[in-house]
Design a protein around this nucleic acid. Structure first.
Lengths: 89, 89
DNA sequence: ATAAATAGTATAATATACTTGACATATAAT
DNA sequence: ATTATATGTCAAGTATATTATACTATTTAT
């Protein structure tokens, strides 16, 4: 069973074979479709590479404005990338 | 012309006849359609009344998980309530 | 008239999103 | 071998989302 917390600095995010932690694969896919690197998206929306990386990989909770900015860069909508997925821990 | 900042404690949010500040009227409408008060929605999603009020009225930038929770309570999607509206200041 | 529910707003404190800087790994090119 | 790009991660700091408390005003019901 899985147990991870939202906190940043408590390394209790028990990965299991690296595919746990509710990754945002739709974001990763949309980025690939645009052939953009994490840094490319980060620069385009005005955040750091680590932030984009964290959104893709972790149980991260970005702000709606950042989500909207990312969607616009990738030509997707909020529903496309952030709706009804893994957010319900 | 309008000039408002994102900061909380700088009262520079120059309303003009009360209808500036990019209110989220779709949220207000969806809430009305469910006949729920701000406090009702707040309790349902586990935040304070002020947070819901701020999202409806101000230039507020909530987290995506909160937006998703609000949408679920109101039987709407992210696109319904938060997409392509006033977020581009 | 007054009590209760709803809504708007302000302030200080707390939690956390996001930054900055750094280090490690993998891949592809030179 | 080594340079460059892309990715993953960690730690400490800063900015801001959210809370807790409080005050005001309006409406509805008693």
């Amino acid at each position: 069973m899985i147990l991870y917390l939202h906190k940043r600095y408590c390394c209790l995010s028990t990965k299991i074979r690296g595919d746990t932690l509710s990754k945002n694969l739709r974001l990763k896919s949309a980025r690939a479709a645009k052939d953009m690197s994490q840094k490319g998206v980060a620069d385009a929306v005005g955040v750091t590479r680590q932030t984009i990386n964290a959104i893709e990989n972790g149980d991260y909770n970005p702000t709606i404005n950042l989500c909207i900015a990312i969607c616009k860069v990738l030509d997707r909508t909020l529903n496309d990338i952030f709706w009804e997925d893994d957010q319900n821990e």
